[in-house]
């Protein structure tokens, strides 16, 4: 069974439920304190939270931690690396993904359920979805407004949409470029996303749509 490290920085706060979701998806997952090593792991997940309280800029300090060198090595080996919310911010700050997450158009924290269109179902994290499938999960962030100078080398993976999959201005909760909710690298093994799939992995919590992100990831690592 593939083994995933759920990396815990000081201030990370979605680590426990992310571990549960990976286990539910058939993977093995452990919380790994940021000073430990990633040796022997088949993939890494940077969960949500407020690492270093967003001091300086969201994700900026964590992105410079030593463990990120190991994360980069995993990524270049083609192993899955997933950044959720603060994890996405860390991935952009660390240069593993291009662009930046700016403050929301209305500059405050927003916790809300949204619809997403799966715009690319060929990545390590979306292979169990259908292209164009509409899924539902919550966002919870103050800096999720994605921007990049160039779309070269980016695969737009998730976009905010209405419940029919139309990518509209109205469905954009934070002002993100092209309604981008998640992007992956060219190889498709590094994904950053603002919505929280781990919070949509239990029918009692409103949706199990997010579980396929982890199932896809587990399956990819198994190959």
């Amino acid at each position: 069974m593939p083994r995933f490290a759920v990396i815990v920085f000081p201030g990370t706060n979605c680590d426990f439920e992310t571990v549960s979701a990976i286990k539910k998806a058939g993977g093995n997952a452990e919380r790994v304190w940021y000073k430990q090593s990633l040796k022997d792991f088949d993939g890494a997940v940077l969960p949500g939270g407020f690492s270093y309280a967003d001091y300086l800029r969201a994700g900026a300090i964590s992105a410079r931690a030593e463990i990120m060198e190991e994360v980069k090595a995993l990524a270049s080996d083609g192993k899955p690396v997933l950044g959720i919310c603060n994890g996405f911010q860390i991935l952009t700050e660390a240069g593993l993904l291009p662009g930046a997450l700016r403050p929301n158009r209305i500059p405050r924290f927003l916790c809300r359920w949204v619809y997403l269109k799966v715009s690319d179902a060929q990545t390590a994290f979306t292979q169990f979805y259908k292209d164009g499938e509409v899924i539902r999960m919550p966002i919870a962030h103050a800096e999720g407004n994605y921007y990049t100078e160039s779309l070269d080398g980016i695969r737009i993976t998730f976009q905010y949409s209405d419940e029919r999959g139309n990518v509209t201005e109205k469905a954009n909760p934070n002002g993100s470029l092209l309604n981008i909710a998640g992007i992956s690298n060219e190889k498709g093994n590094v994904l950053g996303m603002m919505p929280h799939p781990e919070r949509a992995s239990d029918k009692w919590l409103g949706s199990e749509d997010g579980l396929k992100v982890f199932r896809s990831m587990v399956e990819w690592a198994r190959r």
Partner: peptide, 25 residues
């Protein structure tokens, strides 16, 4: 008010704010 609060973290929120009562799994 409650959209500014992270009411989903820890993954237990079955009934969310704005209803008669919150329910945690």
């Amino acid at each position: 008010v409650w959209e500014q609060y992270d009411h989903e973290v820890q993954g237990r929120s079955v009934l969310k704010p704005g209803l008669d009562a919150a329910v945690l799994k």
